[in-house]
Computed example of a mutant assay.
Amino acid sequence: MNKIIGFIGCGNMGKAMIGGIINAKLVTPQSIIVGDLNEKSLAKVAEEYGTKTTTDNNVVAKTADIIVLSVKPNLYPVVIKQIKDQVKEDVIIVTIAAGRAIEATEEMFGKKIRVVRVMPNTPALVGEAMSAICPNEMVSKEEVSEIVSIFESFGKAEIVNEKLMDVVTAVSGSSPAFVFMFIEAMADAAVLDGMPRNQAYKFAAQAVYGSAKMVLETGRHPGDLKDMVCSPSGTTIEGVAALEENSFRNAVISALRKTTQKSIELSK
């Protein structure tokens, strides 16, 4: 990729993206410029990755061909007001804030501009993100491929219709929190039955990780994979029955639908 990539904001998600891009050698560190008011954060990014840094967002705006707005959603109006008259004519703006529709971003810039709305998730921090990508009509197929390659450098990415972004927020954006709760609960049960805490977390987390990998790599239906573990009158089917007695699947469905609805409310 022969482009300058700019980041406005260098929090956890921004740093995860920078690390993924550099590790994948999509561009050189000197082809990345990071803007942030926090000089300590900038110094850490520069030391760790060798990128260019600045405390002036307009330097990023004037320099970058692709700008990732990796700041909190409430700061978008402030940041965009700063840079909207400074960005290159053919710049691609990448937004990663929940609840920020493409149309709303265009309105803040006050003109038609290339916008790609993306919803990554926190496993980006360990190179295992799931990112949903939605470009507006001004972004070419080649440009979309470039954006996809950025997000695939630290996980997996899929192009989705914008109307599904609220569903994405639930099924991949918020769901890591639910998975962490599941791991914690499994570990608590193991501790209750005598296993040391640290060991319990390792067993529970690896079981979840390995199970997810089986779904992704075998292509088999999760129910089919579940049946593989359930021997007649065995230990696993006993546990499955207990989960069903406590409406396990209904609780999960309800949690994700509540999350989707909240995302819809925030987008209005």
Rank of each mutant, 00 (worst) to 15 (best):
S175N: 15
A132Q: 09
S211P: 11
S41F: 03
G99Y: 01
Y76H: 09
S41E: 05
V139F: 08
A187N: 04
L192D: 05
S70H: 04
S233C: 12
I253G: 09
G234N: 09
K258T: 15
M130W: 06
I264T: 04
E217C: 10
R100A: 07
G173L: 00
R197T: 11
I21A: 07
N74Y: 13
I4Q: 00
F203Y: 15
V78I: 15
V126H: 07
E48N: 10
V116L: 10
K88G: 00
A157W: 08
R117F: 01
E245W: 12
P29D: 02
V91H: 00
E152H: 06
A132G: 11
F151N: 08
D188S: 13
A241P: 11
Q86I: 02
T51R: 04
N2R: 14
E107Y: 12
V208R: 13
R114V: 01
K156W: 07
K62Y: 00
M1F: 09
S131K: 04
V139T: 02
V94M: 12
M17R: 05
I264H: 09
V171F: 06
A64L: 00
C230G: 01
N38G: 11
V126P: 08
E89D: 12
Y76A: 10
S231C: 04
T122K: 08
I150A: 08
M130Q: 09
V27S: 07
S131T: 02
A187H: 06
L192C: 05
R220G: 06
N2I: 03
T236R: 12
V71G: 04
I4W: 00
A212E: 13
K156A: 09
Y201C: 14
L225W: 06
T236L: 10
D90F: 10
E48A: 13
E39W: 12
E152L: 03
Q86N: 09
M138L: 15
A207R: 03
S70G: 09
P29N: 03
I264V: 15
T54S: 03
T105L: 09
D56V: 07
F151W: 12
M130D: 10
S41I: 10
V160Q: 10
L225E: 05
A204V: 14
E184M: 06
I21C: 14
V148M: 15
I5N: 01
M214H: 08
E244F: 11
I67M: 00
Q206H: 08
G234R: 09
V171I: 15
S254D: 14
V71H: 11
P120Q: 02
G155A: 07
I150P: 14
A104G: 15
E103N: 14
K72N: 11
S31R: 13
R114I: 01
P196F: 12
E128S: 04
N74L: 15
S263K: 01
V229S: 07
V171H: 08
I150E: 05
T260Q: 06
A189L: 13
S145Q: 13
T259D: 01
A24S: 07
T169F: 13
T51K: 03
E128Y: 06
A177I: 01
N57T: 03
F178A: 08
E48L: 14
V167Y: 11
P73T: 02
S233N: 13
L256H: 02
L243G: 10
V126F: 08
I67S: 00
Y201P: 12
N58V: 01
E143W: 04
V59E: 05
V171L: 13
T218F: 02
